[in-house]
């Protein structure tokens, strides 16, 4: 394992070094020490490497990730795993607002809680949250799965397209055009796989599925008030 001390080496060297692994893998396991809430740690990675961050982070951790596994051993600030394409981002603590925003692939696991706008405009990413999530989660979510082992806040799935939402606890309110759905065997299977991969101790049968009512796909003047 190679170690990078953020305080000594600085953010630019850290990201250049990790991004260079896409050309040639020097080591498949890295650790970042002294993160101290810094922004934009381990962004733009594109190699099958493991990166452990030993502490809490600030804005935009592991943004645009491809292939890499990034493990934050603390909590993450706003915009963690934004626009992830593939790979895995694991947060031991909580995540701040818009975790996994616009993500197109890969798996984001948040062991604690996620705050507002988790999975906003998700486009294929899978997000598993061990705790609860805040308001406006998965706003305009297009595809992918958002799994919440705790509760969801206001306006879950507002204006969503084909993203699926699985919530074990309560939902404070559903957003426009989001509705409760039937849990069919194929959904239980997807959910089981995601829970297993995320290492969450929860039974798929305990969850409720939500998704788009598909009434707002095309403009209809009768729905003008809902837009």
């Amino acid at each position: 394992m190679k170690s990078i001390d953020l305080e000594a080496q600085g953010l630019r060297e850290l990201n250049i070094t990790l991004q260079a692994q896409s050309e040639k893998i020097e080591d498949d396991s890295w650790e970042i020490i002294n993160p101290k809430g810094s922004h934009a740690l381990a962004v733009g990675l594109n190699a099958p490497i493991e990166v452990a961050i030993n502490g809490s982070t600030g804005y935009y951790t592991a943004g645009m990730n491809q292939q890499a596994t990034v493990h934050v051993k603390g909590s993450a600030g706003p915009g963690v795993a934004e626009n992830m394409m593939s790979g895995k981002v694991l947060i031991d603590g909580d995540a701040s607002q818009y975790a996994g925003a616009t993500g197109q692939g890969g798996l984001l696991v948040i062991k604690g809680n996620a705050s507002s706008r988790c999975g906003i405009s998700m486009k294929g990413i899978n997000i598993v949250v061990g705790g609860s999530i805040g308001h406006m989660a998965a706003f305009m979510g297009q595809s992918g799965n958002l799994v919440v082992c705790g509760d969801a806040g206001d306006a879950l799935g507002d204006s969503c397209y084909e993203a699926r939402f699985f919530v074990r606890g309560s939902v404070k309110s559903l957003g426009a055009d989001c509705e409760k759905k039937e849990m069919r065997p194929e959904h239980l299977e997807i959910l089981k796989e995601l829970l297993d991969e995320a290492g969450m101790d929860a039974k798929p049968e305990e969850f409720t599925r939500y998704g788009s009512a598909r009434n707002l796909y095309n403009f209809d003047v009768d729905n003008a008030g809902a837009y």
Binding site: K36, G37, S38, S56, T57, G58, Y59, S75, G77, P78, S96, Q97, S115, S116, G134, H135
Partner: peptide, 25 residues
């Protein structure tokens, strides 16, 4: 809406507020 960031920390000795966790480290 809460789009402006906020982090709090509490111990037996203090309660602290920061716009970002960086301020508390």
């Amino acid at each position: 809406i809460a789009c402006k960031p906020a982090v709090m920390a509490e111990t037996d000795q203090y309660v602290a507020f920061g716009s970002e966790y960086r301020a508390l480290v």
